[in-house]
């Protein structure tokens, strides 16, 4: 078994109780000193799946520290806009001012943060460049033209639910010309529930900041990676055991080949295995499989919240890393 796993790739081996590493037959990214030339030669990016707010791509031939840096930067250093200050002019609903403000802050906003500046002085008045202003003015009333029989709140009252679509953008200065579409990304986020007589009159100020400040500024719902799984069958598994083996993995990982009336398991596509290691439930299958993960092959998943497309978020993260490195070099040169 060891010989199969100790190939040229750096691997982690998923044992029954712990994770171990293999002994690669030749030097890998993990033990090399980082060098631009070799990195360029080896590094590959493969975009696997690209949807509106979700991107799956592979970074191959990269050291974990770098991959992790990108992940960390995406989570907490790429800035976005979010509501930071709420001026409560009137709030007669049952929701407390602070809780309302907190909920409003967590609403993702459609506004390209690259077009804004970070606000330097938090107490200063917001300007066109660093602040977006919104207004939320809504009042719940009795719905006079509803049928008398209905006892559903939606029929009896008007505006009994306050949604993010009720937030209206108030452009400052020339913002109206500069931006076309600004506002909450999702129209149907429930902000508050009201009953007749309740009223909200709020002025909302959104600023630019990053996820380290508060999670609401994070551009991603989550950004993470996993190592590419590699599953090898060490011996042939046939018949009922093959089907059992198939069930131990995610769908599509193991397929069953029929040959001369004989069924046996083969590895089809290990990529989408969830690493559940359920083979270890079966005493007889334990030794049939070697589950490993390739240590320099990262499958990134970036789930954007919607303010920025996921690919842009990644590019921003790279840019931030570049800026940080330049800043460091700059500082070192002054020492």
């Amino acid at each position: 078994m060891d010989n199969i796993l100790n190939d040229e790739k750096p691997r982690v081996i998923l044992g029954e109780y712990k994770v171990t590493q293999n002994l690669p037959s030749e030097p890998t990214v993990l033990d090399e000193k980082w060098d631009l030339k070799t990195f360029k030669k080896r590094f590959r990016v493969v975009i696997v799946r690209s949807e509106e707010n979700e991107l799956e791509f592979d970074l191959i031939g990269i050291h974990p520290f770098l991959a992790n840096t990108f992940r960390r930067l995406m989570l907490s250093d790429v800035p976005t806009m979010a509501i930071e200050k709420v001026h409560i002019l009137n709030n007669t609903s049952i929701i407390q001012d602070e809780v309302l403000a907190h909920r409003l802050g967590l609403i993702p906003l459609k506004a390209d943060p690259r077009l804004f500046e970070m606000k330097t002085d938090p107490t200063a008045e917001g300007t066109e460049q660093d602040t977006l202003e919104f207004a939320l003015k809504i009042k719940c009333t009795n719905n006079k033209d509803s049928s008398k029989d209905s006892l559903r709140a939606e029929d009896m009252y008007k505006n009994n639910n306050v949604y993010s679509k009720h937030i209206k953008w108030v452009p400052i200065g020339k913002q109206k010309e500069r931006f076309s579409d600004v506002g909450p990304i999702h129209p149907d986020i429930l902000i508050a529930k009201m009953r007749p007589g309740h009223e909200l009159d709020l002025k909302l100020l959104a600023v630019k900041s990053n996820g380290r400040d508060h999670a609401k500024f994070s551009p991603v719902a989550t950004a993470f990676y996993r190592l590419l799984p590699d599953i090898k069958l060490l011996r042939e598994v046939e018949g009922e055991a093959a089907e059992r083996l198939q069930k131990c993995f995610s769908p599509g990982v193991i397929s069953i080949r029929h040959e001369k009336g004989r069924k046996y398991a083969v590895v089809a596509n290990a990529r989408y295995d969830t690493g559940s290691r359920n083979v270890f439930r079966y005493e007889d299958l334990k030794d049939a499989v070697a589950m490993t993960k390739i240590q320099d092959h990262f499958i990134f998943t970036v789930e954007s919240v919607g303010a920025l497309p996921p690919d842009v978020i990644f590019m921003e993260a790279v840019k931030i890393l570049k800026d940080k490195c330049l800043a460091l070099l700059d500082e070192l040169s002054h020492v």
């Binding site: 109780y17 712990k18 990676y225 559940s276």
Partner: peptide, 22 residues
């Protein structure tokens, strides 16, 4: 598709490397 014992494979958030234990 989860581990039957409830033990998952985790990555360290600081180093980015897989954790030795589930």
């Amino acid at each position: 598709g989860f581990n039957y014992q409830g033990k998952d494979f985790f990555y360290s958030g600081i180093t980015g490397e897989p954790l030795e234990a589930y």
